[in-house]
Design a binder for these strands. Structure first.
Length: 590
DNA sequence: GCCGTTTTCGGCCCGACTGTTTTCAGTCG
């Protein structure tokens, strides 16, 4: 059962409570919605957390929801959920997936029109709307009927937030729109915020904050964006549009003197903001994008403004919190105690160890596009101290063992030349070696002896059971040349979920052998995922951030790997490739 | 139903926008 499916079940419970008695159950509704939100956006699988007995780690999951989830995973259903959803037409649940449909609207439509078939309810609503049957219902009208038809159509085309973007795509889109927004003279500052600023692995929509003294002019300019599909909403301080690629862009404005609180509000996350505001309430102050509302002596409410985020956080009584940490997983408490970690930064990185050149190694998988010389030149520009070449191992099915060895021996000669000629960027002889289904590495000892060390990784037979996969990985890591576990979970964002393995066991083994886990910065990997990075660090396991570049330009993707490390609370010491060359080599050679 | 730097009981974030309402409900972030 995926996180999305679990979240959907919890949302259905919240909706059922809302239909039965919204006032009576208002706090249950909030609790179930919050749990659904956090589970849906959790970067580790909730099912695995259940198996590892770590459901408590999920914010918003308390004793009650935890026991319901345990029942769900054990038996496939939950008695309490059946009780709550009893009497609520099942046909309304599919409608909740469509933006602009909430529990009330969905319920009134299926109840008034007698729609009972959950399989076809979306089609049924569409047909009836086309016949004009919705506009005549109480509380609905011509406009809302048209809006329903459009919402269904956009939902089918996966427009809006139904499909999440990988980070670089979101970056490009945000940059385009921000550049356009800045063309308005009324714009003083404009930044992309939301999950993009928090550097989440995937981004649902683009949020832009604008400092201006003339919000009406800014919004008028914004909604005239040339690649706009339609305006979703347009108010006096905020607006939302859908662009032709189907993505949603939200814009919020504040005057410059209260821009700091807008940055804070619009960066989120939602749970972070709720925690912050809850904490503030207990101090008798109230937070919003406008600033901090306090009672003054006359008994009247007064809003204090903040032009920077730092001042805003400080005024609540805590340190400024890096956006990557704002997920309500302990950062607020530490900010109050002035004990936030000093997160690793891009400028700390001194080398990239996972680089595929075009060296003719006749690999099992894909070859790089650029030469070792070109890649080294790029490393110089990035001010790296070292660079590790790590093509895929030569194909073992197409070559004899002797042939594999001779390819690697020749490659070693070339790399040795670099080693003696290059003193500014030191070269390291690595290779990305497959861990075969049986647990053996795809190269024999003689072939491995040509290398300084190996990045080992899974590239086949992903659907093994958990025990076998864990054993396979540990066997692969047992070879003394294996120093780095490459893209450890094997996930591909929006394509393939991670394979099943016992992470705790891998962590134990890596800790014992001083083996590093890779944070692969490739945008559809971002593997290890951030929550597992944090777990690795808590267990004293070190990490290496690599780009897995197959071309020169891809070496710029390092920032996305650093972002994952920061979201996993990594400081400089946790990341091995922040070390100088001599220290790094010392670790690498074991 | 969750949660804890005045709490294990008694609170629960804050505001914008839209449509169909003549004063607000529903949805969203």
């Amino acid at each position: 059962m995926t996180n999305k499916e679990v979240a959907k079940i919890l949302r259905n419970v919240a909706a059922s409570y809302a239909i039965k008695d919204e006032r009576k159950f208002r706090f249950q509704i909030m609790a179930y919605q919050r749990a659904a939100d956090t589970i849906e956006h959790q970067s580790s699988e909730i099912r695995e957390l259940y198996e590892e007995n770590k459901l408590d780690m999920v914010p918003g999951v308390g004793s009650s929801i935890k026991s319901h989830l345990q029942e769900l995973f054990k038996t496939g259903k939950v008695k309490h959920f059946d009780w709550v959803t009893k009497g609520v037409p099942k046909s309304l649940f599919p409608l909740l997936d469509i933006p602009t449909f909430g529990p009330k609207k969905a319920y009134r439509i299926v109840a008034e029109l007698g729609l009972k078939d959950p399989e076809n309810v979306i089609n049924d609503v569409e047909k009836l709307a086309k016949k004009g049957k919705i506009a005549s219902l109480p509380g609905f009208g011509e406009k809302s009927e048209k809006d329903i038809l459009r919402a269904i159509s956009e939902f089918r085309q996966k427009k809006g937030k139904t499909q999440r973007m990988v980070l670089p795509y979101a970056f490009d889109l945000a940059e385009k729109v921000v550049n356009y927004v800045k063309q308005s003279e009324a714009v003083i500052k404009a930044y992309p915020l939301g999950s993009l600023r928090r550097m989440m692995a995937t981004v649902g929509d683009i949020d832009i904050a604008v400092a201006t003294k003339n919000p009406i002019a800014v919004i008028k300019h914004f909604i005239a964006y040339p690649y706009k599909d339609r305006v979703i909403e347009e108010g006096s301080t905020t607006a939302s549009i859908l662009v032709s690629s189907g993505r949603q862009i939200d814009l919020m404005t504040q005057p410059p003197q209260s821009f700091g609180s807008l940055l804070q509000h619009f960066t989120g996350s939602k749970n972070h903001n709720i925690h912050l505001r809850d904490y503030a309430l207990k101090k008798g102050i109230s937070l919003s994008e406008y600033g901090i509302k306090k009672k003054v002596e006359s008994g009247k409410l007064k809003v204090e403004s903040f032009d920077t985020e730092e001042k805003f956080y400080n005024a609540i009584g805590m340190d400024w919190i890096p956006p990557e940490l704002r997920e309500d997983t302990g950062e607020v408490e530490l900010a109050i105690q002035h004990k936030l970690p000093n997160l690793v930064e891009l400028s700390d990185i001194k080398g990239d160890l996972h680089i595929h050149s075009d060296y003719p190694i006749e690999p099992s998988h894909d070859l790089g596009h650029d030469s070792m010389e070109q890649l080294l030149e790029k490393a110089r520009k990035l001010n790296y101290e070292y660079l590790g070449f790590s093509e895929h191992n030569p194909s073992v099915s197409k070559h004899t063992e002797e042939k594999v060895y001779s390819i690697l021996a020749r490659r070693k000669e070339k790399i040795e030349q670099f080693k003696s000629n290059n003193k500014d960027v030191r070269v390291i002889n690595l290779l990305e070696v497959d861990i075969l289904a049986c647990g053996h590495l795809s190269l024999n000892e003689k072939a491995l002896s040509t290398l300084d060390a190996a990045i080992v990784a899974i590239h086949s037979s992903f659907s093994m059971d958990k025990k076998k996969m864990t054993k396979r990985i540990i066997e692969g890591l047992s070879n003394s040349k294996a120093r780095i576990l490459g893209h450890p979970t094997g996930r591909l964002l929006n394509q393939r979920s991670s394979f099943d393995f016992d992470f705790d066991e891998i962590l134990d083994f890596c800790k014992k052998r001083s083996i590093a886990l890779e944070i692969n910065a490739w945008p559809t990997r971002l593997d290890l995922p951030d929550t597992m990075v944090r777990q690795a660090i808590q267990n004293g396991v070190k990490l290496i951030i690599n780009t897995d570049s197959h071309a020169v330009w891809q070496m710029n993707l390092m920032k996305f790997g650093v972002a994952v490390a920061r979201r996993g609370w990594a400081v400089k010491n946790d990341i091995l490739n922040t070390m100088h060359y001599n220290e790094f080599i010392k670790w690498l050679k074991g």
